[in-house]
Design a protein around this nucleic acid. Structure first.
Lengths: 164, 164
DNA sequence: GCTGAAATAATTAACAC
DNA sequence: GTGTTAATTATTTCAGC
């Protein structure tokens, strides 16, 4: 199921638009030797297929007042209340990602705060009341890099041997 | 320094464009009662200030053939070689984020793989040779949510007491 | 599923406050 | 510096192949 019948034009478009959502579609069109309307229709199709899930501007958290970035592993006193806890986490705007994980933690979140003091406030006042049995905080000093996944050119079954 | 003199129009624009990089600027312009050119100039200014760091399309990893998502905490045998390790990690396209962290790990990465087997191949063949003394892998089953940070309406110094 | 043309929008430049 | 209008280029829609 993995590739959902993406042809080479779909993949070329994805590679061209992935890192710049405001790229002129006519520029993509010229690179692909098709009309701008064709690019538009393909991108509509990729949206409808769920391959594309919208777009976003990348905002520098520090420049809008968030100096602290942390990842937290959480364990719940009542792991069966996972969904309710996710709903509560959604109400905390500083929590920007939430994952259901295997391993040592029940869930794993990414959180920004204005400063370390603000992070401690959030943990004490908003997270602890959710019923945590344990939590671990990893503070990110610096993001060394952040980027998109590559669009695979090959069928998926070839990839497993790619690293051997 | 945090807000870099963002005025209320800058913040309104950021809120409107954050979650949809392809929103028509004229729609933003009408919401803000200014011309489209003014929105364009403001967004240019936000780019020049470094508040905006470009844009991207959100691509569903599963739909392009990546079934496994993991976070890994890494410890280096030679932590002073951090920069060289970052350079090597950049060469592994499946590694999409890399952070310098406090706490139990020297660094923390986000990694996608075609499947669990492929992840193990990457860890064994590409990560272990970098000189890891220890690593811990957290596999994400499911992303419960992922979103942008809120644009603060208030000066930063007010926020610390916001949660008390 | 593509093209080409028409309508709406983005971008650029010249200029006003 | 921040906004405007007007000209050029791009996006979007749609009829037709």
């Amino acid at each position: 199921m993995a590739h959902h019948n993406l042809d080479s034009l779909d993949k070329k478009i994805l590679k061209l638009i992935a890192e710049d959502a405001r790229i002129p579609f006519l520029e993509v069109a010229r690179s692909c030797n098709v009309s701008g309307a064709a690019i538009h229709q393909r991108i509509q199709k990729l949206n409808n297929m769920g391959v594309l899930k919208g777009s976003k501007f990348i905002i520098d958290p520090e420049k809008i007042g968030y100096e602290t970035c942390a990842y937290m592993g959480l364990n719940l006193k009542n792991p069966e209340k996972f969904d309710a806890v996710v709903d509560e986490l959604k109400k905390i705007p500083e929590v920007v990602e939430c994952h259901y994980t295997t391993g040592d933690y029940d869930m794993f979140i990414k959180i920004y705060a204005v400063n370390n003091h603000h992070l401690l406030n959030i943990i004490h006042d908003r997270l602890q009341p959710l019923g945590l049995s344990r939590s671990e905080t990893i503070i990110s000093f610096n993001s060394a890099f952040s980027r998109q996944l590559p669009i695979l050119d090959m069928p998926v079954d070839d990839v497993e041997t790619d690293e051997d």
